[in-house]
Every structure is written in structure tokens, then in C-alpha cells.
Nucleic acid binder design. Structure first.
Lengths: 126, 126
DNA sequence: GTCCATTTGTCCGTATGTATA
DNA sequence: GTATACATACGGACAAATGGA
């Protein structure tokens, strides 16, 4: 598992890779992940970049991290539920797409509102 | 200036403050937030810390950020959801966001159609 | 019990990339 | 083409929590 140069942001790829390792059973529930330092060395990234990747998985509920102890795979996560749609790379893609769409719609709304003002619309939306 | 864990982390407080400003109506829907640079100066924090705070609100669906434009308050946010749980995690559900987007796009479509009717169809030949 | 190494979490300052206006 | 603004990455630093010597 290595990072691809042309694809998405490195920290997202880190999340994708580790998520895949959990889904494949390579990292069993309750297992301890390598420290951020080790992961940073493995991926050739800064620790903070790895940390950002782990943050995604934490928000997805796949892992649990405790200062002084380490980062562990949630023990109540069923690998089958990952492919079913609980948390997956597909959901990450969807989320970013929805965010992008939301921004575009927001912008369109303002522009349309501006046009309606210029047009001197008499008929409001009933 | 040691950060006592007595209070919550600064980036969380940034999110809390701005969330409160949105909830109170001080920052109206569609309004443009100050740039990250300005907010960093206002709070006396680094830009990255402010950015982390805004990321929370973005994931909650309260704001929308676009590079080169700025950060804006979502216009289709229901104020009731803010008072309900402080942080409305339910609003970040993909399905509800898609539903909201679909409804907004539909409204925009009819408004644009109305504008096109008023404008006549002469602009098509450019 | 105290000291210390490990580990996560956060902040800072800077730099680069990319999209917008 | 230039300026603005968000997004990410890096390296260094410190705090808090855990665990072992």
C-alpha cells in the first residue's frame, strides 16, 4: 500500500489505506495500530498528515485513540458492515461531492436572487 | 499561556463562538464570514487553528467554504436544529443534505425559468 | 510513589497548491 | 495577470495521559 501521486490529498489516502486494512481483517478489532510516528515513517509523511488521516477514521467511528495508550480498532465493528455502507471510501467521496454541490448551489442562489432584484420581479414566490 | 485542559481546546471554542453567532442571527444565512486571516487576528490565534474550528462547522453543515470566494453561512439551515443539540450531527447526514439540495435546486430551476421568460430569448444567439 | 519514555492531541509559523474574482 | 482566500503539508514544540522502571 503506497500513496499515489496524482490522486487525492495524502491524508485522505492514509485514511483509505488503513480503512481498507481494517475492512480486510488485516487489522483485527481491538488491535493496536502503529503509532503516528511509525505510520509517518511508513508513508513518508509528516506526523500531522497521518494524524489528519486518523481523524477521519475516528469521526467515522472505526478507531478509538487515547493519549498515552495508542490507537485501536473498534472492537464492535463488523467488517461486513464496512462494505455494506457504514463507513467507506465511497461515503467519503459522496460527502465531498455533496459539499461541493452545496457550495455551488449556495452561489447559484445568490446569483439568481441578484438577477431577480435587477429584473424587478413583481410576482414573489407564492 | 499554557493551555489548561480546564477549558476546551481553542479551535473548539472558535467553532462554539461562530456557531453561537449564527444561531443568534448575528450572522445571517448567506452572509460571508470574515476571512480566516481576519478571524485569526480577532481571536489571536494562528490561521490553522481557526481553520480547524471552521472545519467543524463545515462538517456540521452550518457553513460552506469555497477557495477564492470565502466562507458563507448556509441559507437553508433550520435554526431550530441549532438549539436542539448544540452540534447538529443529524444535519450532517448525507441523505438529508441531498434532500435539501434537491429541493433547493428545484426551486432555483423554476426561478431561473421565470427569469428566462422575462428576458426573452434573444440572448441565445450570442 | 516518583521519574521517565511513549503516544495522542493540539498549536504555531511557513510554504505551496488551487480556485475565485 | 494579479490579488484574495481556502486547503493541505511540513517541522517543531508543548501539554496531558498512560504505563513501566
Amino acid at each position: 500500500m503506497t500513496l499515489v501521486h496524482d490522486e487525492r490529498a495524502p491524508y485522505v489516502q492514509v485514511a483509505d489505506i488503513i480503512r481498507a486494512e481494517i475492512a480486510s481483517g488485516e487489522r483485527a478489532p481491538g488491535a493496536k495500530l502503529p503509532s503516528v510516528k511509525k505510520l509517518a515513517e511508513r508513508f513518508g509523511l509528516a506526523e500531522m498528515t497521518v494524524h489528519s488521516g486518523l481523524r477521519i477514521l475516528r469521526e467515522e467511528g472505526l478507531i478509538v485513540a487515547t493519549p498515552g495508550r495508542g490507537t485501536f480498532v473498534r472492537s464492535d465493528v463488523d467488517p461486513a458492515s464496512l462494505e455494506a455502507g457504514g463507513s467507506s471510501r465511497a461515503e467519503s467521496d459522496l460527502r465531498s461531492q455533496v459539499e461541493s454541490l452545496t457550495a455551488t448551489v449556495e452561489q447559484l442562489s445568490s446569483r439568481v436572487a441578484e438577477l431577480e432584484k435587477m429584473a424587478g420581479l413583481s410576482a414573489m414566490t407564492d
